[in-house]
């Protein structure tokens, strides 16, 4: 019975996603076939390095894109504060970027109407960020060069957020929000630099967590709730604390003793959550 409801929820999710996709795909997708070199866009690059803002330690990013895609990654460049590469249509308005310094910090406000934006951040600063797309997607790759207190990533109306967490990533809180669409969290890390929290919320759509990290010094706990729909989980070797049709709570066996802890909270309004499962093999 529960399996039927979850399957039904997945079907409805596919249908609703496809309706949104039908109306929005022409806005944020490129042509399926490209003939020759793509010369349609304009590329604008904005870079800030340590010499430009001496003494800054904390960087606060406040990034809003109405329609488009954001890619975030970190490099080992200790001199780099940020590098933004905007790929926009020729007719699109230039992005509005302002840098405001305060005490030992820097506030970066960015507002863009549309475009694909690649954000590269350095490894010598502590970052906080609120990055929002109205319609589109955010892809973030957190490597061992990342040093984050909190990141708030959201697709305000529709779209997706994909987060890739690698070994040695350092963050306190990730807050992922999607109104209609999906969130995918890929955790490839077996160790994190400090205890961390991930909170994911989708009102309409789904959340996929491909795997839950298990490491010598890393304990993980996950709680997932679906209001209408279901939570599908491959429990593997994890301890199940609670499992009902709409709610699942699990943890790794070493969670209570582990020096570093990862807590994951997931909420789905209408839709489903897949945990520790591959979408196509679920």
């Amino acid at each position: 019975m529960k399996g039927n409801t979850i399957t039904g929820g997945i079907i409805i999710t596919i249908l609703l996603t496809s309706i949104i996709f039908t109306f929005t795909s022409s806005i944020f997708l490129e042509s399926p076939i490209k003939f020759g070199e793509d010369v349609s866009g304009v590329i604008r690059t904005y870079t800030l390095v340590s010499e430009d803002v001496p003494g800054a330690k904390h960087i606060n990013l406040n990034f809003t894109v109405k329609a488009g895609r954001i890619y975030i990654n970190f490099t080992d460049d200790s001199n780099l504060i940020y590098k933004f590469v905007f790929k926009q249509d020729k007719e699109a308005k230039r992005p509005n970027i302002e840098n405001i310094t305060f005490n030992n910090g820097l506030l970066v406000n960015v507002m863009a109407e549309s475009g694909d934006i690649k954000i590269t951040l350095g490894n010598n600063y502590i970052y906080n960020g609120t990055l929002r797309v109205g319609l589109g997607g955010i892809t973030a790759r957190f490597s061992n060069y990342s040093n984050i207190e909190f990141f708030d990533l959201s697709a305000i109306y529709a779209g997706g957020v994909l987060v890739d967490i690698e070994d040695g990533a350092s963050f306190d809180n990730f807050n992922l929000r999607v109104n209609s669409g999906g969130i995918t969290i890929q955790i490839k890390a077996n160790s994190l630099k400090k205890s961390s929290n991930i909170s994911a919320r989708v009102e309409l759509g789904g959340v996929i967590i491909n795997s839950i990290p298990v490491g010598m010094n890393l304990g993980s706990r996950l709680r997932a709730i679906a209001d209408i729909g279901g939570v599908s989980i491959n429990p593997g070797n994890f301890s199940i604390i609670k499992q009902t049709a709409n709610e699942v709570e699990i943890m790794t066996n070493n969670y209570l003793m582990a020096p570093t802890k990862l807590d994951i909270e997931i909420f789905t309004g209408l839709g489903g959550t897949l945990i520790n499962k591959n979408f196509f093999l679920s």
Partner: peptide, 28 residues
């Protein structure tokens, strides 16, 4: 109506995007 309407719409969108690709090419 819903299942096949959506299929038709998605197929239409795909066709349109293919045609746009050709138009991009022809516009050169």
């Amino acid at each position: 109506i819903v299942f096949f309407g959506i299929q038709g719409a998605l197929f239409g969108v795909f066709t349109v995007r293919l045609l746009y690709s050709f138009l991009d090419f022809l516009s050169q």
